[in-house]
């Protein structure tokens, strides 16, 4: 028999992270840094759980980095079924932050990457010829 479908609708809070989401419309990638112990958080955190403070400042990350690894996604999940095939990568920025992004161009591990945004996410453009 057919089970009753379950439709889940989620409201996800953005409070405190507006700067990050706005940055994605301006080619800016923002993390947070604890003003007490200096820990840099990416993804950004509102709280520094290491020294129990909420006194963090926003820090803009470098737009250049190196491709650590990647994959070409052919079998796509619900929510992305209408997308063209996409490449997910992990890039290490100049300051040593590892971040997930989509990759444009012909990826190879250790390629130099320029990081931009497309309004919804970080995108790494491969600079090597």
């Amino acid at each position: 028999m057919e089970g009753i479908p379950l439709h889940l609708r989620y409201a996800v809070p953005e409070k405190g992270y507006e700067k990050f989401w706005e940055g994605l419309t301006r080619n800016e990638i923002w993390g947070t840094r604890c003003s007490k112990c200096g820990t840099l958080y990416y993804p950004p955190q509102r709280d520094c759980s290491l020294c129990n403070t909420s006194d963090l400042e926003w820090v803009k990350l470098s737009n250049r980095g190196k491709l650590m690894t990647y994959t070409l996604v052919k079998a796509k999940p619900q929510g992305y079924e209408n997308q063209e095939d996409y490449v997910i990568g992990i890039v290490r920025t100049d300051e040593g932050v590892d971040l997930m992004c989509w990759i444009r161009g012909n990826p190879r591990v250790n390629s130099t990457v320029k990081l931009v945004t497309d309004g919804k996410r970080v995108v790494g453009e491969i600079l090597d010829v």
Binding site: V12, P43, M68, T69, Y70, T71, V73, A75, K76, P77, G79, Y80, Q83, Y86, I88, I90, M100, C101, W102, V109, K120, R121, V122
Partner: peptide, 20 residues
Amino acid sequence: WEFHMYGTTFPAYYALYATR
């Protein structure tokens, strides 16, 4: 920070390990 923005899948996660 991952699924919402990048459409990760379980095979994609392990593929990141395989490529590296």
